[in-house]
Design a protein around this nucleic acid. Structure first.
Lengths: 122, 122
DNA sequence: ATATGTGCAAACTCTTTGCATGGAG
DNA sequence: CTCCATGCAAAGAGTTTGCACATAT
């Protein structure tokens, strides 16, 4: 059901080497270094296929397009650099967070994003 | 420099009555109840004008289009209801949050979003 | 009277889809 | 040899812009 094509292999390799969430443009750019003919539609389709298969998960951050990361990671948050626009993992989390909701609101999950300059852009 | 048109007055009134961040569709819908001829482009333009004038501020939440709210509010966060898709204010904040970034990262601001069911949808 | 604001439609950008061809199994 | 995957180009969805007319000042 899931075929192992050159394109899909390239996209998987890109994520194995990335170590951080990637945007669709980043996946396309890095993927084309491995398979130059790689097209946008293929990236869009594979990202959905791999997410559907539980291999990738979608990272939604405020104000920017979706990023994707390897799915087998424990709970964590993200840092978004305003200069290079890259996202990075933040592995610590203020756990009492979900108690902050107003009365009558039922919290199911939460999202924390830090903004600023990454180590390389400082 | 800023003219007081029927349309702009309607949009301002919508926000005065809202008490929560509004999406562009919500602004259009509520605005048309006051000025039925109100067009999409006018909403888009006015929202930018009013934000530029410091009267509105843009609320960016993960995974959804931008919302807008009155700008003269103290620091706060948001709750996004997965059922009705409406955003609400959360006035408490876990202050130590910006210390969570990895070494070498310079944090300038942060964003916390709670997800779940709002009081009306529970 | 003048210049900003409005409404419409066209232009853009980002994402998805249809279709013929390619290639994994 | 099948059928899923790919690449292209066209179609959609959401947002922005150009232009002629309306209207606040």
């Amino acid at each position: 059901m899931q075929r192992d094509t050159r394109q899909r292999r390239a996209i998987r390799r890109v994520f194995m080497n990335a170590g951080r969430p990637l945007s669709l443009d980043e996946i396309l750019e890095y993927g084309q270094r491995i398979v130059p003919s790689l097209g946008v539609a293929t990236v869009y389709r594979n990202v959905k296929t791999l997410a559907g298969a539980g291999w990738l998960s979608e990272v939604r951050l405020p104000g920017v397009g979706p990023r994707y990361e390897l799915a087998d990671r424990p709970h964590h948050h993200h840092f978004l650099c305003r200069s290079c626009d890259q996202a990075f993992d933040v592995h610590r989390c203020p756990d009492e967070v979900e108690a902050l909701a107003p009365d009558g609101f039922e919290v199911e999950s939460h999202d924390l994003t830090l903004f600023g300059l990454c180590a390389a852009c400082t």
